[in-house]
Nucleic acid binder design. Structure first.
Length: 715
DNA sequence: CCATAATTCTTTTTT
DNA sequence: AGAATTATGG
C-alpha cells in the first residue's frame, strides 16, 4: 500500500495496530506526526468512517497541520474528522449539551483577563486585601484545582492554610459568578464534558460510539482532566493510540502529569508499546548535544535516540557582553544566512520568556529583516480588539457583566463608577444582570443602542455586522478623531479583526455571531490565519513544541533566566527546565546557535547572571565558541571576563574573609528560607555595604539584602 | 466625571 | 524601562 511508503518498520507497526490500545514512545524528530497522519489515512483506507475518528493535538497550529497532511494523504477534505485541541473538542461537547449543563444558548468563554477581573471583584466584595492575596495566585490555584477535578465543595474538605482558605472562599463565589454571567472559563471546557459523561451514561455511550478511534498527541502533557476525559471516551472500544515522549514533558506547571505515559500499560491492559528511536530531523552533533543535556535528569528512563544524518556542523556558542550585544550577534548571523540564500522562514529565535522578544523585534526591525512573533501577547488581547469583542459578547449574552462593565463607558459616555455601583446594587436587589438593571439615564441610551444592534444582528453577514457595531458604538469614530499614529495602528488592528471574521465566515460557511465568538476565544495565535512565508519566527520554547526549523537560535542561556530562577528551588522543576532545553535543541535540523549575555537590562536595572548550566552540560567538543575574549576599560572600570568560572567573587575583589558569595549560590535566610543569589551589587566605596539580590520562594520573591546581614548565611 | 500625575508592578511557561 | 493601576485636582 503506497501510503506506507517511506515508513520504517516500527512506524508501519504503529500504523497497522488498529485494534486495542497502543502507546507510541516517539523520541524527538522520530516521525510521530507522520505516524499519526498515516494511521488516520490507513483507518480510512480500511473503511472506517472519517467521523468515527477523534484526534487530539496540543495546539491549533498542530491540528491545522495535521488536517492538511491528512487531506493530502486521503485525497479529500479532513473536515469530517474531529481533529482539534482538547479545549476545542470540549467546546464542541459543551455546545451540543449546553442545556443539560445548565447554560443558556448564548454562553461565552472568559479568557484569563476576564477571570482575573472577576477574581479581583470578588476580593473587593469580600473586603480581602489583594496585596496580601494575589489575584493571579488565586486564579492559578483555582485553575489548578479545576484541572485536578477538585471543585470548591471537594476542596472544602481539605485541611487548608490561611491562603488556601481564601482561595476556597473565592473559588465558591467564582463558580457562581461564572454561571451568573452565563460563561465558562478554559478549564470548564474540559471539566463539563467529564461531568456530563459521568452523569449521563447514555450520552457517554453515544460519544463512545461516535469516536471509535481515538488518537492523542503529546500524551506526556495531559493533565488529570484531559486524562480522565480520554479514559471515559476510550473505555468502551479501547481503540486508543497515544503518542508521546516523557523527555519532552514541559507543562507540569499547568498540572500535566507525564506519569500518564508511564501508566499507560497499567491503564490499558494488553497495550502494545512501540518505540520510535531513529531521529530523522537533526544531525548527529545536535542530537549528541540534546542527549548530553537530558541525561542529567535523574528522574528519567534512558533511551537511545540516534540519527543517520551525519555529523553536521558544530554548534555555535556566543557569550555576549550585554543583551543588546546578543541581539546584534543574532541579527548579524541571520543577515549572513540570508546572504547565503537561506529562506527566513527556516530560521527561528527561541527564548524562555515572552519578555525577551522585544529586544529581538527591535533589532530585526532596524536591520530590515521581516519577522513574525508566534504566540506571546496575542492579537486578541489588544485593547481595541478586547473592546470590540466585549461589545459583540454583550450583544450575544446580556448576562455578561464583565463585558458590560468594560465597555459601557467606552468611548466616553459620561457613565462613571457611581452609576455602575448603583447598577450593581440594583442587580443584587432584583437578582438580575447589570444589563437588565438599566432603566434610565445615559446608560439607557447605551442599552437602547445594544438593543438595536441585537435586533439586526441576524440580518447581515458577520463582517457587515462588525462594521455596524464599530460605527454605532463610536469605537471607530473615537480612533479616527484621535489622528495619532497609535490610533491608526489600532484602526488597522480592527480591520485585521474583520478579515479574521471574513476568513472564518468563508471557511465555515454562514456562521452566527455566537459561533464566531466561541471559536475566537480559543484562537490564541493570529498567525493561525495568516501565513507569512518570508519571515524569521520568534517564539518561546513552549510555543515551538512540535515544530522544526533548519536554523535555530536559542538565546538567553543564563542561570536565572534559563533555567528560570523560579524553577531553581526544586529538583522537579529544574528537570522540567532541562526538558525544555532538550525540546529547544531538538527542534533544529541543520545548525544550532546558543547564546547568552553577561549582563542584561531587566526590570529597568542591570542583572548579571552566570552561564546556564545547560551550556556546561553540552560536550565541549560539540561547540564552537565565537565569544569575544573581553578585557576592556570603561569609565575607569576594568572588566576582565576571560575567566572560566565567571562568577563575581566579592572575596577575591575585596579580600574580605567573611564575604564569599557568588551569583547562583544558595543561601538561607531566617525569615525567607532558602534562596538563590541572582545579582550582586558591589558598593565600590564601601564594600561592607555590598547588596545581594536574592530570589526566595513565593510569596517572598526577590529581595535585596545587605550581604552581612546577621540572618543570612551561606549553605 | 475626567485628565493628568503619581505610584506600583512586571516576567515563567499556555489552552 | 515601560505598562498599568490608582490618586488628585479641576
Amino acid at each position: 500500500m503506497d501510503i506506507l511508503e517511506n515508513l520504517n518498520k516500527e512506524q508501519i507497526e504503529a500504523v497497522k495496530h488498529i485494534d486495542g490500545p497502543l502507546l507510541v514512545l516517539a523520541g524527538a524528530g522520530s516521525g510521530k506526526t507522520k505516524v499519526l497522519t498515516t494511521r488516520i489515512a490507513y483507518l480510512i483506507s480500511l473503511g472506517v468512517s472519517p467521523d468515527n475518528i477523534l484526534a487530539i493535538t496540543f495546539t491549533n497550529k498542530a491540528a491545522g497541520e495535521m488536517k492538511e497532511r491528512i487531506s493530502k494523504l486521503v485525497g479529500f477534505s479532513s473536515k469530517f474528522m474531529q481533529i482539534s485541541t482538547f479545549h476545542s473538542f470540549g467546546l464542541k461537547i459543551v455546545k451540543e449539551n449546553y442545556e443539560y449543563l445548565g447554560y443558556d444558548k448564548n454562553f461565552v468563554i472568559f479568557d484569563a483577563d476576564d477571570t482575573l477581573t472577576i477574581i479581583k471583584k470578588i476580593l473587593k466584595d469580600k473586603n480581602l486585601d489583594p496585596e496580601k492575596f494575589n489575584p493571579r495566585a488565586i486564579r492559578s490555584q483555582i485553575s489548578k484545582l479545576k484541572n485536578d477535578l477538585i471543585d470548591s465543595k471537594k476542596y472544602s474538605s481539605f485541611s487548608l492554610t490561611e491562603f488556601e482558605k481564601v482561595v476556597l472562599e473565592v473559588y465558591k463565589k467564582y463558580e457562581s459568578e461564572l454561571i451568573k454571567n452565563n460563561s465558562l472559563d478554559f478549564d470548564d471546557l474540559l471539566i463539563l464534558p467529564i461531568k456530563l459523561f459521568e452523569q449521563r451514561k447514555d450520552l457517554l455511550l453515544m460519544y463512545q460510539e461516535r469516536y471509535k478511534y481515538i488518537l492523542i498527541d503529546e500524551y506526556q502533557d495531559t493533565n488529570e482532566a484531559q486524562y480522565k476525559l480520554t479514559k471515559l471516551l476510550a473505555s468502551k472500544y479501547k481503540n486508543i493510540c497515544c503518542v508521546g515522549d516523557a523527555d519532552q514533558a514541559i507543562y507540569g506547571f499547568r498540572g500535566a502529569n507525564y506519569k500518564n505515559i508511564l501508566n499507560f500499560e497499567s491503564d490499558y491492559k494488553n497495550a502494545l508499546v512501540i518505540k520510535l528511536e531513529e531521529n530523522y530531523r537533526s544531525s548527529k552533533t545536535i542530537l549528541d548535544a540534546a542527549n548530553s543535556v537530558i541525561k542529567n535528569n535523574k528522574n528519567r528512563k534512558s533511551k537511545n535516540l540516534y540519527s543517520n544524518l551525519g555529523i553536521g556542523d558544530k554548534i555555535t556558542y556566543y557569550r555576549a557582553n550585554s543583551g543588546l550585544d546578543e541581539v546584534k550577534y543574532v541579527v548579524n548571523k541571520i543577515k549572513e544566512l540570508k546572504d547565503n540564500l537561506v529562506s527566513l522562514s527556516d530560521i527561528v529565535i527561541l527564548y524562555r520568556t515572552n519578555a525577551q522578544s522585544r529586544v529581538f523585534e527591535d533589532g530585526l526591525m532596524k536591520a530590515g529583516i521581516p519577522y513574525k512573533i508566534v504566540g506571546g501577547l496575542n492579537f486578541y488581547s489588544r485593547m481595541e480588539i478586547k473592546n470590540l469583542l466585549a461589545y459583540l459578547r454583550l450583544i450575544c449574552n446580556s448576562n455578561d457583566n464583565v463585558s458590560l462593565e468594560r465597555i459601557i463607558n467606552v468611548p466616553r459616555r459620561g457613565i462613571g463608577t457611581k452609576t455602575i455601583s448603583n447598577l450593581y446594587d440594583k442587580s443584587y436587589l432584583f437578582n438580575v444582570s447589570l444589563y437588565d438593571a438599566i432603566d434610565s439615564g445615559k446608560e439607557l441610551v447605551f442599552k437602547n443602542m445594544i438593543e438595536e444592534l441585537k435586533s439586526i444582528k441576524d440580518t447581515m453577514s458577520l463582517v457587515e455586522f462588525i462594521d455596524l457595531v464599530l460605527d454605532k458604538s463610536g469605537l471607530r469614530k473615537e480612533l479616527v478623531d484621535e489622528k495619532t499614529l497609535e490610533a491608526d495602528i489600532r484602526l488597522e488592528n480592527l480591520e485585521e479583526f474583520k478579515s479574521v471574521a471574513k476568513s472564518f465566515e468563508d471557511e465555515m460557511g454562514v456562521v452566527s455571531l455566537d459561533d464566531f465568538l466561541l471559536n475566537v476565544s480559543l484562537i490564541t495565535d493570529n498567525n493561525d490565519f495568516k501565513e507569512d512565508n518570508n519571515a524569521v519566527s520568534l517564539m518561546t520554547i513552549h510555543a515551538v513544541k512540535g515544530l522544526e526549523f533548519d536554523y535555530v537560535f536559542v538565546v538567553g542561556l543564563e542561570e536565572g533566566l534559563f533555567p528560570h530562577q523560579n524553577s531553581m528551588f526544586s529538583e522537579e522543576e529544574l528537570e522540567e527546565e532541562r526538558r525544555l532545553c532538550y525540546v529547544a535543541i531538538t527542534r533544529c535540523k541543520k545548525k544550532l546557535y546558543l547564546s547568552n549575555a553577561r549582563m542584561r537590562l531587566m526590570y529597568g536595572s542591570e542583572q548579571v547572571y552566570p552561564i546556564s548550566r545547560f551550556i556546561n552540560e553540552i560536550d565541549a567538543n560539540l561547540l564552537e565558541n565565537e565569544s569575544k575574549v573581553v578585557k576592556y576599560d570603561e569609565k575607569n572600570k576594568k572588566i576582565d571576563y576571560n575567566d572560566s568560572s565567571e562568577k563575581i567573587d566579592v572575596k577575591s575583589k575585596y579580600g574580605d574573609d567573611e564575604m564569599n558569595y557568588k551569583v547562583g549560590d544558595l543561601v538561607y535566610h531566617e525569615v525567607f528560607g532558602m534562596g538563590t543569589i541572582t545579582n550582586i551589587i558591589l558598593n565600590e566605596k564601601d564594600p561592607k555595604k555590598t547588596l545581594l539580590k536574592i530570589a526566595f520562594k513565593l510569596p517572598y520573591g526577590i529581595k535585596t539584602l545587605i550581604y552581612s546581614h546577621k540572618s543570612l548565611r551561606k549553605v
